[in-house]
Simulated assay, not measured.
Amino acid sequence: MKADVVRAEGAPGPTLVLAGDRLPQGALALGEELRNVRRWLDRTGRGHIRKIALYGASSSSAFDLEYRFVQSLPRGFDFRTGCGHSLLACVAAAGRAGPVRVRALTTGDAVVCEPEPQGTRTVRFTGPWAARRLLPTGCPVDRIGGFDVSLVRFGNPYVFVDASAFGVRTAEELFGAGVELLLPLLRVRAAAARLLGLAPRSALPKIAAIGADGSGRPFVRSVAVDGWHPSLALTGAACLTAAVAVPGTVPHRLADGSALTILTPGGAVRTTAVAKAGVLGSVAVHGKRAHILERSVRLPWRIRVTA
Rank of each mutant, 00 (worst) to 15 (best):
2 K>Y: 08
4 D>G: 08
4 D>R: 09
5 V>T: 11
6 V>G: 00
8 A>M: 13
9 E>R: 14
10 G>V: 02
11 A>E: 15
11 A>N: 15
13 G>T: 11
13 G>V: 03
15 T>R: 02
15 T>C: 10
19 A>G: 06
23 L>V: 12
25 Q>Y: 06
26 G>C: 11
29 A>I: 00
29 A>W: 07
32 E>W: 13
34 L>P: 02
36 N>H: 10
37 V>K: 03
39 R>M: 05
41 L>F: 03
42 D>V: 07
42 D>S: 04
46 R>Q: 12
48 H>V: 05
53 A>K: 01
54 L>S: 06
61 S>K: 01
66 E>K: 07
68 R>K: 14
74 P>R: 04
80 R>Q: 08
81 T>Q: 00
83 C>T: 04
85 H>R: 07
88 L>D: 03
91 V>W: 06
92 A>H: 06
94 A>W: 09
94 A>H: 13
96 R>H: 07
97 A>L: 11
99 P>K: 14
99 P>W: 05
100 V>H: 00
100 V>G: 03
101 R>N: 10
101 R>I: 02
102 V>Y: 03
107 T>E: 01
109 D>F: 08
113 C>F: 12
117 P>W: 12
118 Q>V: 05
119 G>D: 06
121 R>W: 08
121 R>H: 03
124 R>H: 01
127 G>M: 11
129 W>A: 04
129 W>Y: 11
134 L>I: 13
139 C>Y: 06
140 P>V: 01
145 G>L: 10
147 F>E: 15
149 V>K: 12
152 V>A: 15
166 F>A: 09
170 T>F: 09
172 E>G: 11
172 E>N: 09
172 E>A: 14
176 G>A: 04
179 V>A: 15
181 L>N: 05
184 P>R: 12
186 L>W: 00
186 L>Y: 00
201 R>E: 14
206 K>H: 12
210 I>D: 00
211 G>A: 08
212 A>L: 06
213 D>R: 02
215 S>L: 03
216 G>A: 09
217 R>A: 07
224 A>I: 05
225 V>M: 07
228 W>D: 09
228 W>P: 07
229 H>W: 04
231 S>L: 03
231 S>Q: 04
231 S>H: 03
231 S>T: 13
233 A>C: 08
234 L>M: 13
235 T>F: 01
236 G>K: 00
239 C>Q: 04
239 C>T: 11
242 A>Q: 06
244 V>E: 08
244 V>Y: 12
246 V>S: 14
247 P>D: 15
249 T>S: 13
250 V>F: 04
252 H>V: 00
255 A>D: 04
263 L>K: 02
275 A>M: 01
275 A>R: 06
280 L>N: 03
281 G>S: 14
283 V>R: 04
284 A>M: 09
287 G>S: 13
288 K>Y: 10
290 A>C: 01
290 A>P: 03
299 L>I: 05
300 P>N: 15
301 W>M: 06
302 R>N: 06
303 I>W: 08
305 V>D: 12
